[in-house]
Each structure stands twice: as structure tokens, then as C-alpha cells.
């Protein structure tokens, strides 16, 4: 029987609901049995809430992008006309490529009658293997303004899962990106379950609903926790209703804890404060991990 770690992604749809703080507390609570991954490659913060050392850094290359050789370009404009992403324009009678807009499709190189456009590798960021006192840590950083965040997430999660298999670590806990588009889709693609951190506000409820539907679409079981549940008079009724709507499990609520930002700022363990409130989350991870090991 091959050992297969169980992979849980912490996601939210809406940003700033508390994914990273909760992930960090869970990593601390499950020390020794967990491999932590920061898959928010656009704005990675998990390493700020743990004590992480970076061991091996790997470059991440997205698709090669267009580069014009000006000496060969006659300024005919065929590439400008063919590019669907407005990534090329004529400047001083020569084609000029805007790397920030180039998606790397290669249409320009195909249509150029002078073969004056090369597709050259572009570094889009890095991913790294490291460790924290609680266990191995994998993280990544997309170049600011970079492309292919979904591919970087996929690459990161594949490496992390392999590492967990090699070391026989039963749980891969993934701090995911906000939103429900490419990087979030890739995060779900590399997970066995999702833990959704929601906030009882109209925007938080809407974004939880969207995230939950995405989980349903991918057939990934979703569990929901309401964060800062007492900060608003709304209560969690609507979050529970939405959770039922997409077939998720409502695990419980965490109140607003004003000391958390300070504890995080001082890299102190927020577990003492969060402990009683995240017990249902830890139970959820334990029981799911156990099922994973039996499988």
C-alpha cells in the first residue's frame, strides 16, 4: 500500500478573512504531523506567522514570451495586428513588446515575415523548500505583476505532496489564495478537501457561496468556519444557510480576538487564544487524516 498524505486547502473566496492566522495556528497544533504550504503565491504571508528557514530555492519559468530583434524588424505591423493581448505596438517604426501583457501564445512569431521575433524564457517567480519547527514548509513567490500564478501553484503543490509522501507526513495543510480564479482553482486541484474561512458580512457570505460552488464543481468536500463571528450583529445564520446550499459542513465559529494582530506581529503563537475555538477544526483534520491513511 503506497502512503498517501491527505491534503487540505484553507480557502475563503474573500481576502482578509483570517486564512493565514488560522492555518498558522493549525500548523502549530499539529506539529510533527504536518507539512505546511503557502499557496498564496501572489501575496505569501504564512512564513510571517511561523518561523521559516528557506533551504532550497527553485526558479519558476512561465511560458516563453515574445522578444523582437529590432535589427531584423521592418516595422510591417503584422505582429501588432495579430496579437490578441495588445502586447505589441510600433515604436519608432519597429515592433516593441510589452512583457507585462504578453501571454506567450507565439502568434507574433508565427506571423512575422522576417522571423524577427523570438520566444524567450521568462522568470515568473520562485518556489522553495524550507522548514519551520513544526515540520517541512513549501512556499513560492510570483514576480510582482507576473503571469501563470495557477501554474506556479500547481508546481508548488506537486512538489509539496511528493515531499510529504517521501517523509511519510500524513497531512499537507495549504494556505490558499483569495478569490475563485486561476490560483484558487489550481489550489483546489491539488487538494483532497477544503477548509473555508468565512466572515459574516454581505461580501463574505457572497464569496463563501462562490467558493463553495467551486468546491462542489470540483467534487471537493468543504468544511466552513465563521471567523470574527461576533463582530457584526448579523450572526452566522446566513453563512450556515449558504454552507448547506453547497453541501458543506459547518464546523463552528471563532469570535473577534483583538489580541491576534499583536500576537502575529510579535510572531507569538496565536494558539493560546485560538485554541478552544479551533478545536473543531483540529478534530476535522484528525478524522480526515485518519480516513486518508486507511484508504
Amino acid at each position: 500500500m503506497t502512503f498517501r498524505p491527505w491534503r487540505c486547502a484553507v480557502l475563503s473566496g474573500k481576502g482578509g478573512t483570517g486564512k493565514t492566522v488560522i492555518t498558522a495556528a493549525l500548523v502549530r497544533a499539529l506539529a510533527g504531523r504536518v507539512l505546511a504550504v503557502d499557496a498564496d503565491v501572489d501575496a505569501p504571508n504564512l512564513s510571517l506567522a511561523l518561523t521559516v528557514t528557506r533551504d532550497v530555492t527553485h526558479p519558476f519559468f512561465g511560458l516563453p514570451g515574445a522578444r523582437v530583434r529590432p535589427e531584423a524588424c521592418t516595422g510591417c505591423g503584422a505582429c501588432v495586428e495579430a496579437c490578441r493581448f495588445s502586447a505589441l505596438e510600433l515604436r519608432g517604426g519597429k515592433a516593441w513588446g510589452d512583457e507585462g501583457r504578453c501571454e506567450g501564445c507565439g502568434v507574433c512569431a508565427f506571423v512575422c515575415p522576417e522571423k524577427a521575433i523570438d520566444l524567450v524564457p521568462r522568470s515568473q517567480g520562485i518556489f522553495f523548500q524550507g522548514s519551520c519547527p513544526e515540520g517541512p514548509f513549501w512556499g513560492a513567490q510570483l514576480r510582482p505583476g507576473g503571469e501563470n500564478s495557477g501554474k506556479l501553484v500547481q508546481c508548488l503543490l506537486e512538489h509539496a505532496a511528493q515531499d510529504a509522501r517521501d517523509r511519510r507526513i500524513p497531512l499537507v495543510l495549504i494556505d490558499g489564495p483569495p478569490g475563485t480564479s486561476c490560483p484558487a482553482v489550481s489550489t483546489l486541484g491539488g487538494a483532497d478537501a477544503a477548509l473555508l474561512v468565512a466572515e459574516p458580512t454581505p461580501t463574505g457570505e457572497e464569496d463563501l457561496g462562490r467558493m463553495g460552488e467551486l468546491c462542489r464543481l470540483f467534487a471537493i468536500p468543504a468544511a466552513v468556519v465563521a471567523n470574527r463571528s461576533d463582530l457584526t450583529p448579523r450572526g452566522t445564520a446566513e453563512l450556515r444557510r449558504r454552507t448547506e446550499g453547497f453541501g458543506g459542513t459547518f464546523l463552528g465559529s471563532i469570535p473577534f480576538l483583538p489580541e491576534i494582530p499583536r500576537l502575529i506581529a510579535q510572531r507569538e503563537n496565536p494558539l493560546a487564544s485560538l485554541g478552544p475555538h479551533i478545536a473543531p477544526l483540529i478534530d476535522f483534520l484528525h478524522s480526515s487524516m485518519a480516513r486518508g491513511e486507511e484508504a
Binding site: 482578509g16 501572489d42 501575496a43 505583476g145 503571469e147 500564478s149 489564495p177
Partner: peptide
């Protein structure tokens, strides 16, 4: 704007 600093933000 969306959060982050990648293509949707830009």
C-alpha cells in the same frame, strides 16, 4: 481592484 499583485491587479 482585486487583491494581490499579479495579472488581475495589473
Amino acid at each position: 481592484c482585486p487583491p494581490g499583485s499579479s495579472c488581475p491587479f495589473v
